[in-house]
Design a protein around this nucleic acid. Structure first.
Lengths: 117, 117
DNA sequence: GACTTGTGCTAGTGCAATTAGAATAATAGG
DNA sequence: CCTATTATTCTAATTGCACTAGCACAAGTC
């Protein structure tokens, strides 16, 4: 279980934490039934406040990716799996965007708009 | 030239403005050589501060999408065109993500990670 | 030369992220 | 049952960013 966090990136820490977990879920290194490390541990390891970690966990819960229960912690739910095809599509899309010189900002903006359409 | 902005969306206004321009560029309704409306006009029309609009314009300049010069305004550069294939890929990707119940947060997180890899 | 338009500066306001500490409730495990 | 674990909830303070506001200035256009 690896959490990559850059406090100076502008992206909120809790968002980065949630994103880390999402990608681990996507690539299958985290599976249904697995437990995330306790928020206290993560907070200590990253030298971050526990509330920041819990915020990330709660966001993941709101998305239905994990189950949060006191005493037990955060457990990955059943519907958290991602299809390999989706990952492949993402890989291809990014590759083409790179080839065209399209920045990540432009790409996510277009994606976000397509999503809300 | 249409700017869609929702001050209550949580997304920074300048980001929304830049995203609007990006999508117009992407779909071809803005082409190389076209001028964006003066920042003062946009600010007045949207009842937003001029600095907010200029921030968006400057972000677009930093991405190389427009040229900013005093007296002339913001002009779309040559390398601002996007391929229709990329748009189609984005459309397909979002469609599949929707079908799988993958949220926009998860999707952008994966994309961002793939991009920095 | 007059006008247009972006640049740069200072300053203030409001909100969200982060930190901090504490009390509480639910669950796990011996 | 008892204890340790862990999330939940609350208040509060700090910090940084987005946004607003107004002004002077520079570099273009026409």
């Amino acid at each position: 279980m690896l959490f990559r966090v850059d406090p100076a990136s502008g992206v909120p820490i809790f968002d980065q934490l949630a994103a880390s977990v999402r990608s681990e879920l996507a690539r299958g290194s985290l599976r249904a039934g697995d437990r995330l490390p306790p928020a206290r541990e993560v907070a200590a390891a990253l030298e971050v406040n526990i509330h920041t970690v819990l915020r990330a966990y709660q966001d993941l819960r709101d998305e239905g990716l994990v189950d949060l229960r006191r005493g037990r912690g955060a457990v990955v739910t059943d519907n958290a799996g991602l299809s390999p095809e989706l990952l492949a599509d993402i890989h291809d899309l990014v590759a083409e965007a790179r080839r065209l010189g399209v920045g990540v900002g432009t790409l996510t903006a277009l994606l976000r708009e397509e999503y809300s359409a």
